[in-house]
Design a protein around this nucleic acid. Structure first.
Lengths: 132, 132
DNA sequence: GACCTGATTCGACGTCTGTCTATTCAAGAT
DNA sequence: ATCTTGAATAGACAGACGTCGAATCAGGTC
């Protein structure tokens, strides 16, 4: 159950349109639960660094053995964080011989970016911030 | 210390350019810690729903008294979640008479969207997903 | 086969988080 | 001044989370 978390996120099928969006209409319970899983995965400094290392890697993928030494953490801990990122649908991996390689799944980050992007008009510009 | 969390996020000054980005280069420790605080604030279904209710509100702001009854939670719990969103720099509030009104701070969501957006070229398209 | 190395899984443990009730604070109304 | 209502704070507590060491699994080498 990796990418089951895609309700608002765009669904698994084609979905050209630009996402309902967090900022345009109230999320319902189920949507919020699914979305929260993904943001929760991003809510840890170690996982953010892992994700950015994976995403920015020239060639598109990186070996666990190149990730681990960048942290002052045990190897099982890194493995744990990678698992959470994978369960959130942000990355995927494959074993090749002795090593395991990870890569970004850009669909998910694209969807998140879309969800956080305000529509041109917005729900209404907001009158001002300090009336009194 | 509300908006102290803006390193990668764009800084407090003007910063027209489109953010270093999570996906283009490895985040350093400090950047990751600050960014994680914001994503952590988004990593809860209740807070996501609160944020979306606030953001999508016509007029730009909403009274706490309109938020609370939408949830099956105690009033202090809602207050607690609003505080976390505020500390993350995602919303702000103001008391007007008996009531307290909240509104979105779009700068933060804009920055997050930018951070999650891949640059046109990308760090390199990624060769393919399943070599072997 | 036995052995070695890279990576994941398992259990345990301390900390952090979400929730509650009770209390306090702020602003009006009587 | 006292009371009432809306909201925030304080303290408590169960459950989730991040980390570790030990054990297990997957491949390759000898």
């Amino acid at each position: 159950m990796s990418n089951q978390a895609l309700f608002v996120l765009g669904g698994t099928g084609e979905r050209g349109v630009c996402c309902p969006g967090l900022l345009t209409a109230p999320l319902d319970e189920g949507q919020a639960v699914e979305l929260a899983k993904v943001f929760k995965a991003l809510g840890d400094p170690v996982r953010l660094r892992l994700l950015s290392m994976i995403a920015s890697r020239a060639g598109g993928e990186i070996c666990v053995c190149d990730l681990t030494p960048a942290f002052d953490l045990s190897q099982p801990t890194i493995s744990h964080h990678l698992k959470l990122l994978r369960q959130a649908g942000l990355i995927d991996c494959e074993r090749r011989g002795t090593w395991v390689y990870y890569w970004l799944l850009p669909d998910m980050t694209d969807r998140l970016a879309g969800i956080l992007t305000r529509p041109v008009g917005g729900p209404v510009p907001a009158p001002a911030e300090a009336p009194s």
